[in-house]
Computed example of a mutant assay.
Amino acid sequence: MYLLKIKKIIFLVAAMTATFSATTFAQQNVGLPTIELKAGIYRIQAELADTPKAREVGLMNRTSMPTNSGMLFIFEQKAGHCFWMNNTRIPLSIAFIADDGKIINIEEMQAETTNNHCPKAAVRYALEMNKQWFSERVIVPGTVIQGLPKR
């Protein structure tokens, strides 16, 4: 009987933790629209950072991000838009993407650093995912990201 009670308590704590984590992530994302993108066979739920304020804040101060979620940065003009990780608590990978959807280059970024990570060509799009998300799926420069909004 005692063992059964312990198992119930462990189950309840695990369920509450999972609910809290999902709720916390959802609360961090309030107000940003999302879009579904595809990289090969992989589907990505990407928040849109398409305003100056959303791009400035990006993924700062978040403590986690679901596996196939990310943030798509959209700029009005193609340029050498560089990124850094100041106040960003989770390590990320960033893919710089041309207008035709092809990945130009991918950079790995450490949390809480101020190193610049820049595209190798002028771009309008950048997609941030959890660190090594691209390499673990063998998504490399030249891969096409489908579903980008047209500007």
Score class of each variant (00 low, 15 high):
43 R>Y: 05
114 T>M: 10
26 A>L: 13
70 G>T: 07
63 T>F: 15
55 R>V: 01
22 A>T: 02
68 N>L: 04
73 F>I: 00
75 F>D: 08
10 I>F: 11
116 N>L: 15
80 G>V: 04
17 T>D: 05
58 G>K: 01
36 E>P: 00
58 G>M: 04
26 A>E: 14
96 F>V: 01
36 E>S: 11
43 R>A: 12
77 Q>W: 08
85 M>K: 10
76 E>L: 06
76 E>H: 09
58 G>T: 06
15 A>M: 11
55 R>Y: 07
106 I>R: 04
120 K>G: 14
93 S>V: 01
7 K>Y: 05
69 S>P: 00
116 N>I: 02
117 H>P: 03
31 G>P: 06
42 Y>H: 11
81 H>I: 00
65 M>P: 00
77 Q>D: 15
72 L>A: 03
112 E>C: 08
85 M>Q: 05
92 L>K: 04
63 T>N: 13
77 Q>I: 02
43 R>K: 12
32 L>Y: 09
87 N>G: 11
45 Q>T: 14
11 F>L: 13
23 T>Q: 11
104 I>Y: 00
86 N>G: 12
14 A>P: 00
78 K>C: 08
69 S>R: 11
42 Y>I: 01
99 D>H: 07
38 K>W: 11
19 T>K: 01
99 D>V: 04
118 C>K: 05
44 I>D: 03
81 H>A: 02
26 A>V: 02
114 T>H: 08
38 K>A: 15
85 M>H: 12
49 A>E: 06
49 A>L: 10
54 A>L: 07
47 E>Y: 12
64 S>D: 11
65 M>I: 10
110 Q>D: 15
